[in-house]
Amino acid sequence: MGHHFVGIPELTGVPRVAVVVDVMRAFTVAAWAFSRGAERIVLASTVGEALALKASRPGWLALKDGAPAPGFDEVNSPGRLRSRDVTGRTLVQKTTAGTVGALAVADAPLVLCASFVVAGPTARFLQAHGREPVTFVVTGEEGRAEEDLACAEYIGHRMAGAAVEAAPYLHRARTSRAAAELAGGLRGGSHPDDVALCLELDRFPFAMVARREESLTVLRPVTVPGARPSPS
């Protein structure tokens, strides 16, 4: 395939095509936000920037990793976000790994943010645009997060067009360190359903593309022809 799989510290230069993977939980949360009606997600580099952006734009909402905190409307949890209506709203997202990885490659000509819930549409989007090879940014644990690497490899194989058995990749994610920490309540702002929600393959029928919009890095959903949401 010729794809590259790198951690954030290993990034050098500007890739031609980057897929930034954060399964647990940034880009699962982002997908849920779009499914709940969000118009766009602005990726913030710091907690202070997230709060400043929210304060300067009436109606914007902010979310971050960890436990609830003053000034933030939500935490980085799909289990918590899935019941919230954010129709037409702009969210500002700051997380420990996912948003950091996306901002690190924000100058690339094409940047997609991905997790298992949009894995198939992401692969189809890349196929349709003839974009190979891809630099997959494995955001967790400095590139060693098993759930992110499994998802990245799965998308890479799906791009080849052949049938791919998803179960082994989902098993790697389900038995990862991140999944164990979430299931054990060791990560702040978690919900009992977070792990299961992060492992819902192709839950949503869109890919997520990050682009520069003025001085901001903005994530938006892009409908992928032929993609169908999985049964809920």
Rank of each mutant, 00 (worst) to 15 (best):
M1N: 11
G2Q: 12
H3W: 01
H4A: 15
V6H: 14
G7N: 14
I8Y: 03
P9E: 11
A18Q: 08
V20Y: 12
V20A: 14
V21D: 14
D22N: 06
M24R: 14
F27T: 13
T28R: 11
R36V: 06
R36K: 13
I41Q: 06
V42S: 04
T46P: 01
A52P: 01
A52Q: 14
L53W: 08
K54I: 15
K54F: 10
A55C: 01
S56E: 14
S56L: 05
R57W: 03
G59W: 10
A62D: 12
A62F: 09
G66D: 09
P68D: 09
P70H: 03
E74R: 13
V75P: 01
N76P: 07
N76L: 04
P78F: 02
G79E: 03
R82N: 01
R89N: 05
T90I: 06
T96E: 07
T99A: 04
T99P: 05
A102E: 08
A106Y: 01
A108C: 03
L110M: 12
L110A: 05
V111M: 09
V111K: 12
L112I: 02
L112N: 08
F116K: 12
V118D: 05
A119C: 07
A119M: 06
T122A: 08
A123N: 02
A128C: 00
A128V: 00
R131P: 01
T135W: 00
T135D: 06
T135Y: 03
V137L: 07
V137M: 05
R144Y: 00
A145G: 09
L149W: 04
A150G: 04
C151E: 06
E153H: 02
Y154C: 11
Y154N: 01
R158E: 13
M159H: 03
M159D: 07
G161T: 06
E165Q: 08
P168Y: 06
Y169W: 12
Y169M: 10
H171C: 07
R172W: 04
R172S: 12
A173L: 03
R174V: 13
T175M: 10
A178E: 03
A180F: 00
E181V: 01
A183D: 08
A183Q: 13
L186H: 13
G188V: 10
S190N: 15
H191Q: 05
P192K: 04
A196T: 11
L197C: 09
L197M: 15
C198P: 05
L201R: 11
L201K: 10
P205C: 08
P205H: 08
F206C: 14
M208C: 13
M208G: 03
L216R: 14
V218D: 12
T223I: 04
P225Y: 03
